[in-house]
Amino acid sequence: MSHSSSPKDLTDLRQFRFERVLNEDPLTHSLALLGRFEKDNTQAIIRIEKTALDAASAPHYFAEDGLIQKVQLEESTDIYTWLFGWFGEARERDVKINVICPATDTHIKKYTKQVQVMVRETPDLYKNVVRPYISAFPPSRTQWVENILTGKSEQSKIVYSDDEFLILPDMKWDLKTLSSLYLVVLVQDRTIRSLRELRRAHLPLLQSIRTQAATIASQKWGLGEGSLRMYVHYQPSYYHFHVHVVNANYEGGVLGMTVGQAHLLDDIISLLEIDPSDSEDGVFQRMTLTYSLGERHGLMELIQAYKSRNA
Results as ranks from 00 to 15, higher is better:
L206E: 04
M171E: 03
K110S: 09
Y182C: 02
T112G: 07
D174M: 07
E154M: 13
A90K: 14
R91M: 09
V99Q: 10
G85K: 09
L203S: 09
S135L: 14
Q207L: 06
S194G: 10
E121M: 05
L195T: 07
F84I: 08
V145H: 05
V129M: 09
K127F: 07
V117R: 14
R93Y: 11
T177Q: 05
T106Q: 13
S180A: 15
L203A: 07
L198R: 06
T106W: 03
T106A: 15
L168V: 04
G85L: 06
W86F: 10
T112N: 06
T150Y: 05
F165H: 04
R131E: 15
Q143G: 09
L205V: 09
K152Y: 05
L183S: 04
L206Y: 07
T104F: 07
I192Y: 04
K176L: 07
L168C: 03
V119H: 01
V185Y: 01
F165R: 01
V130Q: 03
L178H: 08
L181N: 03
E197T: 11
E154H: 06
V119F: 03
Q116F: 06
D94Y: 09
L125D: 01
K157M: 10
S135D: 15
L149W: 04
D163N: 12
R200L: 02
R120F: 09
E154R: 12
T81E: 14
L168Y: 05
L205H: 07
D124R: 12
E89D: 15
T142Q: 03
F137R: 13
S153H: 07
L205W: 08
D162E: 01
R193P: 00
D105R: 09
T81V: 04
L203T: 07
T191K: 13
